[in-house]
């Protein structure tokens, strides 16, 4: 099932299928390892609900919901 990262629930894992957006923002996402094929685990949300914290390529990355909107993933079944 395809789902945007912003729609993920805490604890869900998925494989990136597509990164939308354009220009520098997209470039930045790529540089930080947010590329198709990478595995993403949504760790938590900030106290006010907005920036998200994910584990990707073995490290912790934070990004806003508006940026998570651009990342489309294939949801992995819970183990």
């Amino acid at each position: 099932m395809l789902k945007k990262l912003v729609e993920f629930k805490i604890g869900e894992t998925g494989l990136i299928k597509k990164v939308e957006g354009e220009g520098r923002l997209r470039r930045r996402l790529f540089d930080m390892g947010v590329t198709p094929g990478a595995k993403v685990y949504l760790r938590k949300k900030a106290p006010l609900g907005d920036p998200l914290e994910v584990t990707i390529r073995g490290y912790e990355l934070t990004l806003r919901k508006s940026e998570a909107e651009l990342v489309v993933l294939e949801v992995e079944d819970a183990k």
Partner: peptide, 9 residues
């Protein structure tokens, strides 16, 4: 500005 940042250990 976008907020895409590493959270170091």
């Amino acid at each position: 500005a976008p907020f895409i940042m590493e959270l170091p250990e």
